[in-house]
Amino acid sequence: MLEAIQQAATGLAIGSVYALVALAFSVTVRALNQINFATGELFMLGAYLGITLTATIGFPFWVAVIATAIAVSVIGVLFEKIAYRPLFRANAGHPGRLHILIICSTIGTSIFLQNAAMLIWGAQALPFPKVFDPEPFRFQGIVIPVEYFWVTGVAMVLMGALNVFLQGTWIGKGLRAAAQDRETAALMGVSLPAADSWTFGVSAGIGAVGGLLIGAMSFAYPTMGAAFVLKGFTAAIMGGLGSIRGAIVGGFLLGLAESLVIAFISSVYKDVVAFALLLVFLQFRPTGLLLKPVQTRV
């Protein structure tokens, strides 16, 4: 039982990171029906920037989180302007081809970013500096590292902030309008190019914070993005791809499912859980737990 509670705490912390990656996916899927395959590398950049900002520059953890979010958002916006928009413009009449080109272009971006990171920070895994209290939280024989609380807490705050941003701010409302119906939003005065830039920026920022948090729990390495991309996508599918609430629910569920498998079966099968869940959900409930299955009309 203790073991299970212990693992559940880990599951919640990891799950909150999955939720952030799922959110990063859902934001672009909702707005543009596109998956950014470079999400994993933006995530990885978040982890490295977090390390650099705290260790080299000496920022406090929370400042590093904000600075990382902003810096990687800018990279996301740049990506939209340099790589996404020209493709979108040139192939707007060919949605099928556009989709594939975006996938390939984002793969190109991820190869680029991965190798850029390797050149800057080296190929070896980089540990996160000790910014947290090394003495874990203890209660009735349960031992939980302090950073788990930080990770879960920061993720929760970010999800809350995203919600406020989308629901309460002028820009957020514009983004939601554009996500629902681009033509109508444009008629209402929403600038679609600006909305697309914001979409990629917000997605990149969220993913980067996810990476930073994982970095804080373990370490950073150049290929870490690939491992988390599929997990984050699985979480997004479980909750319902494109749904903000779904991403959060899916993230926590996946984190818990993984930690329970570790607790009761074996850590060897930890990664199989995500892939199996992905295939099962895609097969039997592709719209996820929170979204209603849609009946498509011909």
């Binding site: 340099i82 790589a83 020209p86 493709l87 040139a90 080109l101 390939c104 272009s105 793969i107 190109g108 971006t109 991820s110 190869i111 680029f112 970013l113 991965q114 190798n115």
Partner: peptide, 9 residues
């Protein structure tokens, strides 16, 4: 990676 991005455009 860069060449790929450019080729797609």
């Amino acid at each position: 990676g860069l060449i790929l991005m450019v080729l797609m455009v």
